[in-house]
Amino acid sequence: MYAFNYHRPKSTDEAAKLVAEAEDGKLIAGGMTLLPSMKLRLAAPSDIVDLAAVEGLRGITVSGKTVTIGAMTRHVDVQTSAEVKKAIPALAALAGGIGDPSVRNRGTIGGSVANADPAADYPAAVLGLNATVETTKRKIAADDFFTGLFETALEPGEIIKAIHFPVPDAAAYEKFPQPASGFAMVGAFVARFGKDVRVAITGAKDHVFRVPDMEKALAAKFSGDAIAEIKLPDDDMMSDIHCSADYRAHLVTVMAKRAAAKAAG
């Protein structure tokens, strides 16, 4: 790991200023991706700005039909939250499937969403549940947030404060995990809000995406069978030593079918 300057601000304003003034400043939340990347020298920021001491970024609140999770809330807190388990059990289960227990004791929802790893779990929930990402500057709809490989709509110095999840009538997340890392080779989040259905897929392409054909089929008939024959082309799927593009395309159908069947109960 290359040397860097370390800052521990008390407010998001101060944090944003420190990042802006640095030659190459990076925010750190739980650090479960950033620190391994720095050790591998894939990242070499000049300055690390730690959000750990910033007030007001942690915690879970449920009000009406919305679950709000602060950006610095850890995976273990979402996994074990009685309120999340009651309102959106699929979200608590998803958090409980990230990495391993020691990683979940550090990693945060804001860090995961801001990092936008193509195989991360949380982006599927954010997009599948039509969540809103609240930042220091604005509120960003999930459909506008994830823009590419590790790319989001966040501007330099813009910090995620919280994520607002609408409570669905039914939802489920199913993933085929890479056995060593736990990352999703393919993960599917299916959520039903009244007659509307959203299907979000992570792990398959360079960033999380929706599948309109599956959403239409599930809106007509909410069951796993309704989408069992819907295949996606594999030309823009990722391909690596773990999983070829055509296998990923196959897994999209299988995982979405399982998630829909689970959500349909």
Partner: peptide, 19 residues
């Protein structure tokens, strides 16, 4: 490298001492 940080198990190879 697991240790307890404020009572919870974490991986000490992926935390900075300054954190």
């Amino acid at each position: 490298c697991a240790i307890h940080l404020n009572g919870e198990a974490v991986k000490s190879c992926t935390i900075l001492a300054v954190q």
